[in-house]
Computed example of a mutant assay.
Amino acid sequence: MKKENSATVRDGVAVPASEPGSEQSRRRRGTALAFLGVLAFSGSFPATVHAMRGFDPWLTALGRAAVAGVVALICLKAAGRPLLPPRGRWRAYVLISLGVVLGFPAFSGLALDLGASTAHAAVVTGLLPAATAACAVVSAGERPRPLFWVGCTAGAVAITAFTLTQHHGRPTWPDLLLVGALLSAAVGYTEGGRLARHTPGWQVISHALVLSLPLTVPLTVVLALATPMNPTPPSVAGLAYVALVSMFLGFFPWYAGLAQGGIARAGQTQLTQPLLTLVWAWALMGERFGPVTVAAALAVLVCVAVTQRART
């Protein structure tokens, strides 16, 4: 007699269990897609710094969301999709909007404006995968194995130790703002990854951006009229990058990867983001960083390998 596959329950819907081989392949594909998203996000801090050389920090944070929201609106209209998400899922989309559309850009931009270097900000936000994994357990019902938590915790410890050594054991205001940024992103990533299990990732971020338009567009117009601007080619390019890539296109593979590879597991690929951002900061901005920064980035890179070997 043929044995029927068991089923799991996701968001209240029974989903047939996959064969072990196909499940492993799906998770690997999810990890690869998530890494593409990380590659897109890794240029966000250098691009933000360039943008703020010509625009106010608040204008940069809200303007990127407004531009991305208008583009998302056009894409949804062209694809014949509803412009707003189903009402039953508005709570999740509001959390995404507060987390990745408003919270992360505002907190990280202010931290950079108050003096945090791109390299320092990148390494501190290496705590983000740990925060995302915790949110995945609470909100998405994921249960990673102990080995996963070993790698995740080791990465968090390495990042924390790095932060404290930079300021003689005392966190600074930019550090606290960066913590606010990573907590905001963790919530937005978890909710988006959960919704992407049954909605294409590009639609998830598009709906969140469109839902924010009544707030982001008016505030952007007010700030554009009230704050001084000195648009230069580098600052305009930086704003375009964070609006179109960091805020929109990067979420296409990112949310798809979280849905396929598991939010906690695939989310650990973001531990590679500090190292990638250090490369961009050196190549595009000429920033210099010491061996401690490099050691911290490499330590979290090792932790990625550990988390990816652990099954969820």
Rank of each mutant, 00 (worst) to 15 (best):
V204I: 03
M285L: 15
L225T: 05
A240Q: 05
R265F: 08
L244G: 13
P214K: 11
P231R: 09
S235P: 03
T269P: 05
T269E: 11
A243D: 11
G262R: 13
H207P: 01
A266C: 14
T232R: 14
H207Y: 13
G290Y: 08
S235E: 03
A266Q: 12
T220C: 15
L225M: 14
M247G: 13
P233D: 10
W280P: 03
G250N: 11
A237I: 08
L301H: 01
L278H: 01
S212E: 03
W280F: 12
R194A: 14
Q273R: 13
L284C: 10
T277W: 04
A224P: 09
P253D: 06
Q273L: 15
L278M: 05
V210K: 06
A296N: 10
S212F: 07
G286Q: 06
W254C: 00
R194E: 06
A208Q: 05
V245I: 15
V294D: 00
A226C: 13
H207T: 07
V279R: 01
T269Y: 03
A240P: 07
V236D: 06
T293C: 04
V222Q: 11
V245A: 02
G238Y: 07
S235R: 04
H198A: 13
A226F: 02
H207W: 15
Q270I: 11
E191C: 06
A296H: 08
P218C: 09
L278T: 02
G250V: 09
L215I: 14
V210T: 09
P291W: 14
Y255A: 00
F289W: 07
L271P: 02
A256S: 15
M247T: 15
I263L: 10
L249Q: 10
Y255I: 00
T216K: 01
A243T: 11
A243H: 11
P214Y: 10
